[in-house]
Design a protein around this nucleic acid. Structure first.
Lengths: 148, 148
DNA sequence: GTTTCATGTAACTTTATATGTTACGAGTCG
DNA sequence: CGACTCGTAACATATAAAGTTACATGAAAC
């Protein structure tokens, strides 16, 4: 999640398409990993990929219309919580009681988190980035920022 | 978490101490795993363990005074959220912007979850279990409920 | 006191999952 | 055609969780 957003914002701050290799270097990972992650976003229509010379990844959506929740879902909507309910013995009344209590708490937290993610657009993130950039001054150089 | 609560409630519904072996069979795991998990609870004073004949695990606290949050902390307070922030390039302004947005959402969700866990006592869970037991009728037999 | 039972814990093995890598096919541009 | 880049399958590695073995320690039964 965090890494994907990072890539998206860097793409937004770049006019030309960016190759998997460049992105992978910045994220300290492998080009194939980048392609794997971006596959979901491409299917959702948030990014576009082009082959050949001058190819690579570029934004294909209106950043104001896509929220972090949309991104999360494009990534397959993995569970946001680290712990879940056991369901090994659904006939056990103890398990039912435990699950009832936990499920309620978990569902509430997950709903809140999804709501918060749904309230933040990529455009808002990009704007925050530009604000930080202006506050610091100087150009934005992805390679330098990711050197260390 | 879920498994620990399950064990605790079964212990509460049992007068004599329960051995790691019996608990492990019910939870479909290994006695050593049970001991490992219970170690945290023992150090926190929520359960007691006794060796030798007739030994095993028993409740050592007032169920009304211990919340699910307490249990979570006794287990080492592992992260409740499945995803975190990357911090590989803290000097990157994009990363700062992304992390600021995500951190806020995550912290809120985690706080809500902890609050909810803190609002449920073990006694409340036990009461819910007894209610389900009464509704169904018949005795509570751990072995049977965990047979499948 | 010896035997039996049970925990405590270290060390090791197994399993599951995520991540990284290699390889190659296919499309694109010069 | 040749250089470039994505798409994807297949394989390798790393990490963490769970399971297992082994043995020491303590407690009750006899």
């Amino acid at each position: 999640m965090s890494g994907v957003l990072h890539v998206l914002l860097h793409m937004d701050a770049h006019d030309a398409p960016m190759t998997s290799e460049v992105l992978a270097r910045a994220m300290q990972t492998n080009p194939v990993v980048i392609r794997r992650i971006m596959a979901g976003l491409r299917e959702a229509g948030y990014v576009r990929s082009e082959k050949g010379h001058g190819g690579g990844w570029s934004i294909a959506c209106d950043l104001k219309a896509v929220t972090l929740r949309d991104i999360h879902e494009a990534l397959g909507g993995p569970s946001l919580l680290a712990i879940g309910n056991r369901t090994e013995a659904p006939g056990c009344l103890v398990e039912q009681a435990v699950n009832a209590a936990l499920t309620q708490a978990f569902d509430e937290a997950e709903a809140l988190l999804l709501e918060r993610l749904g309230g933040v657009t990529l455009a808002a993130l990009a704007k925050d980035f530009k604000k930080r950039l202006a506050a610091r001054g100087g150009p934005h150089e992805m390679e330098k920022a990711h050197a260390g």
